[in-house]
């Protein structure tokens, strides 16, 4: 089962309300056969933009991040269940991927265009295309009409 991460924006609530909401969201994962690996509180702050959810406009919110393992088939149900929760302003589920290693190609990219490989490839490709040339089919080696 792959690792997932859900970023939640909850509406501002009193502490006991917040606890019950968090418990509900966690239970939703457990009920779908998932395991929670980590819960992070990113604080309560002003939202970067107004968000309307469940018929009211929110300007402040509490940020939480759950890292969890869960079968991919239950992801849709989880998302749908969070969507129905009135206390959740916004939720996004992301797959956690280990960042792949790669070599920096900046030194190739800042070369002058003529030395860049992608430009050289483009020039080569443009040469390949044979352009359409009109044929008179008159059997003559000259044009009989005024050109």
């Amino acid at each position: 089962m792959p690792n997932y991460e859900v970023a939640l924006v909850l509406r501002t609530m009193s502490r006991p309300e917040l606890i019950s909401t968090l418990r509900r969201t966690a239970d939703a994962i457990f009920n779908k056969g998932g395991i929670i690996r980590k819960v992070e509180n990113l604080g309560t702050r002003n939202l970067p933009y107004k968000m309307s959810a469940h018929g009211s406009v929110h300007k402040q919110g509490s940020y939480f991040v759950f890292q969890f393992i869960c079968p991919p088939s239950s992801l849709h149900n989880l998302e749908e269940e969070y969507g129905r929760d009135v206390d959740i302003v916004r939720r996004r589920i992301f797959k956690m991927e280990t960042p792949e290693e790669f070599e920096c190609t900046l030194h190739e990219e800042i070369k002058p265009p003529a030395y860049r490989k992608d430009v050289q490839k483009m020039i080569e490709e443009s040469k390949k295309i044979d352009k359409y040339k009109f044929k008179y089919n008159s059997g003559l080696d000259y044009c009989p009409f005024q050109k």
Partner: peptide, 25 residues
């Protein structure tokens, strides 16, 4: 002045961040 791969990764993360309500548009 980022390489193509890092720029792509950065843009992806910015879109995710904006969508999740962390960052303004």
């Amino acid at each position: 002045r980022l390489c193509a791969a890092q720029q792509a990764r950065l843009e992806k993360e910015i879109f995710k961040s904006q969508s999740a309500g962390f960052m303004p548009y």
